[in-house]
């Protein structure tokens, strides 16, 4: 049941106005006797952690039929106990500015910029990954130092650098380190230094 703002407010309005209002209403019935269903009462609660600073506040994303309806603090998290700072509280907007309205600034397509071009052009994701793999191989093969002048195996690839990131998950960081080290990359860094 996709609730847009009007219907929603009508719902809250109904619960707010309580009994039918007559010209000379005598006594307003208690408003909140029955639980008014609203946007997140029947939504699935998905626990997650805030992606901004490193306090690690718990968050709950309310999802119904795959649609993100609300994002709030997780009261069970002993660190944040349901609170979120402004950055955490706004994190739903990474995906949706409002329910059903995707954030227009989000980039949802792979893009490619030719040397010297003044604008992006769209590119197929798989094709982009193939081209990237070729460039990584080409750069590695070109600048690879297998052994140093004393004959010691050093397996160093100084043509390729990797930056990033303190904003990605542990599992992703591990894969970055594992792959980059196996490519012989020594220029490997992330935010922690800046």
């Amino acid at each position: 049941m996709q609730v847009n703002r009007r219907e929603f407010l009508k719902l809250s309005g109904v619960s707010a106005a309580g009994a039918a209002v007559v010209l000379f209403a005598d006594e307003r019935k208690a408003l909140a006797q029955d639980l008014k269903e609203h946007r997140i009462t029947k939504a699935k609660e998905v626990p997650t952690v805030c992606p901004h600073c490193s306090v690690g506040c718990g968050m709950i994303a309310y999802v119904k039929e795959g649609e993100l309806l609300q994002l709030e603090g997780n009261p069970d998290s002993p660190i944040s106990e349901g609170s979120l700072c402004p950055k955490g509280a706004a994190s739903m907007q990474f995906a949706y500015d409002a329910v059903g309205k995707a954030n227009p600034l989000r980039q949802l397509k792979a893009k490619y910029r030719k040397p010297g071009a003044t604008a992006w052009e769209e590119i197929d994701l798989e094709k982009a990954l193939d081209m990237i793999a070729e460039r990584v191989k080409e750069t590695r093969d070109k600048s690879f130092v297998a052994t140093n002048k004393d004959g010691l195996t050093v397996n160093r690839n100084e043509g390729l650098a990797h930056l990033g990131s303190a904003c990605i998950d542990n599992e992703e960081c591990y894969l970055v380190t594992k792959l980059m080290r196996s490519l012989g990359v020594v220029y490997l860094e992330h935010h922690a230094r800046i």
Partner: peptide, 15 residues
């Protein structure tokens, strides 16, 4: 730490 996973990225040595 500044970012969500500065500690994690440092533990897993993206360094």
């Amino acid at each position: 730490r500044g970012h969500a996973n500065v500690q994690g990225a440092t533990d897993l040595a993206v360094l």
